[in-house]
Computed example of a mutant assay.
Amino acid sequence: MRNWPGTPGRVRTIGPAYRPEDGADRHSSGAGLGAWFDAVRHSQQVTPVRWLPAGGR
């Protein structure tokens, strides 16, 4: 698997407004990760979103 970024596959895209019932519509396939993204990051720990205060920066 030396060229895994160039291997065609299936990607699940989840944005800020994820709805589990729409999960099947959020897949792309065909190209490899290297064609879709400039960088790929993997994290062992995933945490829930922490919303910013309304109107604040």
Results as ranks from 00 to 15, higher is better:
2 R>Q: 12
3 N>T: 09
4 W>F: 02
5 P>S: 01
5 P>K: 03
6 G>K: 12
7 T>H: 00
8 P>K: 03
11 V>I: 11
12 R>H: 12
12 R>P: 00
13 T>D: 05
13 T>Y: 05
14 I>L: 09
14 I>H: 00
15 G>C: 07
15 G>F: 04
17 A>C: 06
17 A>K: 11
18 Y>K: 02
18 Y>F: 15
18 Y>V: 01
19 R>F: 01
20 P>Y: 00
21 E>S: 07
22 D>S: 10
22 D>A: 08
23 G>W: 03
25 D>A: 02
27 H>M: 05
27 H>Y: 14
27 H>S: 06
28 S>N: 08
28 S>G: 11
28 S>Q: 11
29 S>I: 06
29 S>T: 06
29 S>R: 14
30 G>V: 04
30 G>W: 01
31 A>G: 02
32 G>N: 14
33 L>Q: 10
33 L>M: 09
34 G>W: 08
35 A>D: 15
35 A>I: 02
35 A>W: 00
35 A>M: 06
36 W>T: 00
38 D>H: 07
38 D>K: 11
39 A>C: 09
40 V>F: 05
41 R>M: 13
42 H>C: 07
43 S>K: 06
44 Q>A: 15
46 V>Y: 04
47 T>W: 02
48 P>G: 01
49 V>A: 13
51 W>D: 12
51 W>E: 15
53 P>M: 08
55 G>D: 12
55 G>T: 09
55 G>M: 11
56 G>D: 11
56 G>C: 10
56 G>E: 13
